[in-house]
Computed example of a mutant assay.
Amino acid sequence: MSELIHKQQEELAEIIEQYTIDDGSHQTAIPGLFFSRYSHAIGPSHGVHNTSLCIVAQGKKEIWLAQERYEYSPTDYLITSVNLPITGQVMEASPEIPYLGLKLEFTHDQILEVLRNSDIATVSKEKTERAMYVNRINSSMVDAVIRLVRLLDSPEDIPVIAPLFIKEILYRVLQGQHGGMLKQAVVQGSSTYRIRDIIEHIINHYNSSFRSEELANLANMSVPSFYRHFKEVTAMSPIQFQKQIRLQEARRLLLSESTDAADVSFRVGYESPSQFSREYSRMFGFPPIEDIKRLRVKA
Rank of each mutant, 00 (worst) to 15 (best):
E3G: 03
K7Y: 03
Q9P: 09
E11N: 13
L12A: 11
I15M: 04
I15F: 04
I16H: 06
G24T: 05
G24V: 05
A29K: 14
I30R: 07
P31N: 05
F35S: 01
I42R: 13
S45H: 14
H49N: 04
S52T: 14
K61S: 01
I63E: 04
L65G: 04
L65S: 08
Q67I: 03
D76S: 06
L78R: 14
V82G: 06
V82A: 07
Q89W: 02
V90Q: 00
E92K: 14
A93V: 08
A93W: 05
S94W: 06
P95Y: 00
P95R: 00
E96I: 08
E96M: 04
I97F: 09
L102F: 10
L102C: 08
F106R: 10
D109C: 02
L112K: 15
R116W: 06
S118L: 02
I120L: 12
S124R: 11
N135R: 10
R136C: 00
S139Q: 15
M141E: 13
V142L: 15
V145F: 01
V149Q: 04
D153I: 00
D153Q: 13
E156F: 09
E156Y: 12
D157F: 11
I158F: 10
P159W: 01
F165W: 15
F165L: 11
R172T: 06
V173P: 11
G179V: 08
G180L: 02
L182G: 08
V187H: 05
G189C: 09
D197P: 06
I199Q: 13
S209L: 12
S212M: 04
E214H: 09
A216C: 11
A216G: 12
L218N: 06
L218Y: 13
A219R: 09
M221H: 07
M221L: 13
F226Q: 05
F230N: 02
K231N: 08
M236A: 07
M236Y: 04
S237P: 09
F241A: 04
Q244M: 11
R246C: 01
R251W: 01
L253G: 03
S258H: 13
T259I: 15
F266D: 05
Y270N: 03
E271F: 04
F276W: 05
S277E: 15
S277N: 14
E279D: 15
S281K: 15
P287Q: 00
P287T: 01
I292R: 07
R294H: 11
L295M: 13
L295W: 10
K298G: 00
A299F: 15
